[in-house]
């Protein structure tokens, strides 16, 4: 089971987290309909690294972005998301 380094809590078991979607599939609310649907449905689904949005649902409930390898499950980078990390 993957160990995910929550930026708020430290390393925690993957079972505390939920996967939401890929970073590049976030649909801006101002996108035109056709572009929005392309963003939503067309996924790279690589057999390699991908930027993903997860949530520490059964922990601090914070959101994070992982760069994760989908074959090895190696997590290359983690960064928090949300208002707390705005400049």
């Amino acid at each position: 089971m993957m160990l995910i380094d929550c930026p708020h809590c430290g390393p925690r078991a993957q079972e505390e987290f939920t996967y939401e979607r890929t970073r590049d599939s976030v649909v801006p609310l101002d996108a035109a309909p056709a572009a929005a649907m392309a963003t939503l449905y067309a996924r790279a689904n690589p057999r390699g690294e991908e930027d993903e949005i997860w949530r520490h649902t059964l922990g601090c409930r914070g959101w994070l972005e992982l760069r994760r390898h989908r074959m090895t499950h190696a997590i290359v980078a983690v960064r928090p998301l949300g208002p707390a990390v705005l400049p």
Binding site: Y41, A42, R43, A44, N45, P46, R47, R70
Partner: peptide, 18 residues
């Protein structure tokens, strides 16, 4: 199981996650 990968070889993206 690998549709995303193989379609990716053709430069295509599908509404599929593995």
């Amino acid at each position: 199981g690998n549709s995303g990968h193989v379609a990716g070889l053709a430069g295509l993206r599908l509404p599929i996650e593995s």
